[in-house]
Design a protein around this nucleic acid. Sequence first.
DNA 1: GTGAAAGCGCTAACAC
DNA 2: GTGTTAGCGCTTTCAC
Lengths: 345, 345
Amino acid sequence: MAYDLKTIAKMTGYSVSTVSRVVNGKGRVSQKTRDKILEIVDEYNYVPNQIARSLKSNATNTVGIIVPDIREYFYKVIRSADAIFSKHGYSILLADSNEDPEKEEMYIKLMYEKRVDGLILATVSNEFKALDIFFNNSVPVVFIDNLPEVDGAYEDCVLLDNAKASSMAIDQFVKEGHRRIAIISGTETEMTGHERMDGYLRSMRLHGFEPDERLVKIGRYEEEEGYRCMAELLENRQEAGFTAVYVSSYKMSCGAFKAIKEKELRIPDDVAVIAFDFTDDTGLITPTITSVVQPIERIGRIVAERLIDRMKMAKQAEDEREEDFPQKIILAPGMLLGESSRYVK
Amino acid sequence: MAYDLKTIAKMTGYSVSTVSRVVNGKGRVSQKTRDKILEIVDEYNYVPNQIARSLKSNATNTVGIIVPDIREYFYKVIRSADAIFSKHGYSILLADSNEDPEKEEMYIKLMYEKRVDGLILATVSNEFKALDIFFNNSVPVVFIDNLPEVDGAYEDCVLLDNAKASSMAIDQFVKEGHRRIAIISGTETEMTGHERMDGYLRSMRLHGFEPDERLVKIGRYEEEEGYRCMAELLENRQEAGFTAVYVSSYKMSCGAFKAIKEKELRIPDDVAVIAFDFTDDTGLITPTITSVVQPIERIGRIVAERLIDRMKMAKQAEDEREEDFPQKIILAPGMLLGESSRYVK
DNA sequence: GTGAAAGCGCTAACAC
DNA sequence: GTGTTAGCGCTTTCAC
């Protein structure tokens, strides 16, 4: 059984409070006492119970992270956030909602029950409802990936500039000589899908190309949907007359590539492609793939820093708390240039 | 501020214990009382404080997971373990040791301080030292990926049959017609490196091939090392006379491919390859890659199940606890057949 | 410098 | 059926 302060105190002959002072290195304790106590603490391998501390201090030094699927880029975000959190003494309570809004809601509640000091949320839901417990008790929440819409107002978040991602892809295509550019995008009900589509349309217009619905396919962010969308596009390739396709999600990109391969078409000769968040670890992929990429490391770092800031503020007494407004942090995507976006002929 | 039981009790006019009973659904409470209390609980959105519960019950319903780098296959293991844990009401406290034994030790201690009910550890250290707190207090630990060696004895673990992975690769090569087969393997000081090498040597001998040090390159599990090893092998290709290479780590495989490409050699024509834990999401890689793969989903599932079992046992009173011996669970790898292992000419 | 004691929010005897 | 109370392990105020 684990030793507690009382037991250690008894063994040293001092009181609990003195032992506590020594263990925490606070308060005045004579050197002699300190040495004697530390010896016993070491000998019996006393490890303070953080649960008890948390109950007392009303802080767990733990942040919650809820993501829809850790296998997406989130695991990299977590890795980078973890580096920051661990430096500041925070641990991570992780939950994977499996894209299920109800499970997400359950986890939000659970995180609150476990009294995390802050929460990072990549939500799949469109309402804040379950988060009320956090807001009402001013436990900081920072969103990533996606922000549920609430009439104009917004919360703390770190997001990709999705519209810019699209326009960067279009710009690149245009620069290479393409004129008829198609897009495969996510469902409009998702904030990201909406923004990526929006950026595409705006950018196309800026280049003087009128919108053409034959150039647009929309689906869920899944490999099969990417496959379907690309297959449908290719079905009407002659008629629609496009030479390039921007596939605005990683999973969809994988599906789209398979559709192209199945039709025995060549990239970029028959159809040029710019993918999303795509990197080739192996160097084996031919042609090399042009891709818009999220600044994943930065997302993790920044969301962690922002949350830590907010948690610090929350600790201050209400009256001396400096006024703080939600921050919407929008990060620019990057571009990986490859051969897949070339204009041939 | 969050409401506590006492406040809720005051509001309902009942005592804390009655409110507690209602919230937990235990003990006899009249329907009328229950309804009245639940109404207030709902109205004020009372959420029980798990920290306090944990202090009382001496259980956190949280398991710790420490991995060296979540970006390796561990994030998939975690995903699959999470599915099991969440079903059983456990949350995950995650830590990434960044391959640093000291950081790992620090996290082990932290996990204990936060009183996790159990621990999953993919260690980078070769000693159990820091884990004493867990063992001494009989908090269950299950190892994955790697088990520090301690003279014959072992602990609970879920591991890949690394020797079998190697022999499967060699068998496949032989079946395809190869006779001179090289290996790129991890450092011998790592259990996995040792076992993979061992399996290779044994399998080669079984097939009647004498060991030949020109066919063996060893390095750390890193992309650059895979590159270096492959480059060195290819340097002496004529002399060593091999037609095939088994690269026994994912990261090393990526580096090895780059070395081959740089030398402008073809796979499998000039050198056949079997990789480790390699899958191609895109279908774009030519040739398709033959690879030995870990049963990642199963690892996650099984390690979670085993830990849950152990935690249940730990809860039982010492005297009625059924005797339990550590289990060494060894899982067989799988094989993904591709063109990269072919024997040409 | 050190100790006694209250209390963090909850559960579970035990009493009524 | 319901209420009182001790105590989980710790920190911290207040006395001495």
